[in-house]
């Protein structure tokens, strides 16, 4: 471990911002997972696959519209909708028949879905690396703390809180959102007052997957889009949701910040083992607070 070099405040600051923007992507993806977990009480293993589909769909849509600025913005809007459609089909055709069954079976179903979607993506898009250009407006970098910081990451820092606020408004101020939260707490009661719980579940599942797709579309200009990107994100989202408190949206935010920041500071201090740090953070959090940082809805 080479701690011999000194770290300037500038380096720490810019690394902090990098971690923060990474945390925003993680937050968007894991808040979707948290929403599904809160209402359906099942960890959606296929969440990462939907994120991957979001990224690939964003690639295809932006290529279809010439790869320019319009293509990018359209991709950002349409790709999550494509993902939502895929999840709606999976939910209505198969998943909705399993709600009465044992819990582990729901988990297994999502694992099967992950296997199937992973191979379908390979069939449709192949195993090549793809990349998307961000529009002119978001390219290049600005100087913060005397070091260049990519504009796209700034854009992510704006989008993340917007999604958070939108999700909060949705689940606290709209009728559908309130019903979904009620179903999370007591599904029998919600059914008893004449609401079709099955459709509430479908809605929650599709919304969660929409957020996964949005995360995938947003991340696509910063990484190379390829098969296999689903495996890493889903485990990260799992752990974030667990350390935050199952089903708690703000918990997902706290967890994402912990995860994103430990990862980016890990890169600074010990690059070879940077991926180890978030896992250590999770172990510490769960040892200290076995049921997560914030109150879980279960």
């Amino acid at each position: 471990m080479d701690t011999g070099q000194t770290f300037t405040v500038a380096a720490l600051g810019s690394q902090f911002l990098v971690g923060l923007s990474r945390a925003m992507i993680l937050f968007i993806v894991s808040s979707g997972m948290s929403f599904v977990l809160g209402v359906l009480r099942v960890p959606n293993v296929a969440h990462g696959s939907l994120y991957m589909i979001g990224a690939f769909a964003a690639f295809s849509i932006s290529t279809l519209f010439g790869g320019g600025a319009t293509g990018f913005w359209l991709a950002l809007i349409l790709a999550p909708l494509v993902v939502a459609l895929v999840s709606l089909i999976a939910e209505r055709s198969l998943f909705c028949y399993l709600y009465e069954r044992e819990h582990l079976m729901l988990l297994l179903f999502t694992f099967a879905l992950m296997l199937i979607l992973g191979d379908l993506v390979k069939m449709v898009w192949g195993a090549d690396y793809r990349s998307i250009m961000a529009p002119e407006l978001l390219r290049g970098s600005v100087n913060i703390f005397d070091s260049p910081f990519p504009r796209y990451n700034l854009f992510l820092l704006i989008i993340g809180p917007l999604v958070g606020i939108g999700l909060w408004l949705f689940s606290n101020k709209t009728k559908v959102g309130k019903i979904a939260r009620a179903a999370a707490v007591d599904r029998e009661m919600v059914g008893a007052i004449g609401i079709n719980v099955s459709w509430v579940f479908a809605f929650a599942f599709v919304l969660g997957c929409f957020l996964a797709g949005l995360g995938g579309a947003l991340v696509s200009p910063t990484i190379s889009v390829t098969i296999g990107m689903d495996h890493d994100i889903v485990i990260e989202a799992f752990l974030i949701v667990t350390i935050g408190g199952l089903g708690n949206m703000w918990g997902a935010l706290v967890g994402s910040l912990i995860f994103g920041l430990t990862q980016s500071f890990g890169v600074l201090f010990w690059p070879q083992f940077a991926i180890v740090f978030p896992y250590i953070a999770v172990v510490i959090v769960l040892t200290w607070r076995p049921r997560g940082m914030l109150k879980s809805v279960w």
């Binding site: 960890p43 799992f238 752990l239 667990t242 070879q272 991926i275 180890v276 896992y279 999770v282």
Partner: peptide
Amino acid sequence: LYFGMLQISLGSLIWAIAFRWY
């Protein structure tokens, strides 16, 4: 579920070490 998640985290720690310690 918390049991499973903590175990995945600890197991992934081992994986990450084996994966990175060239």
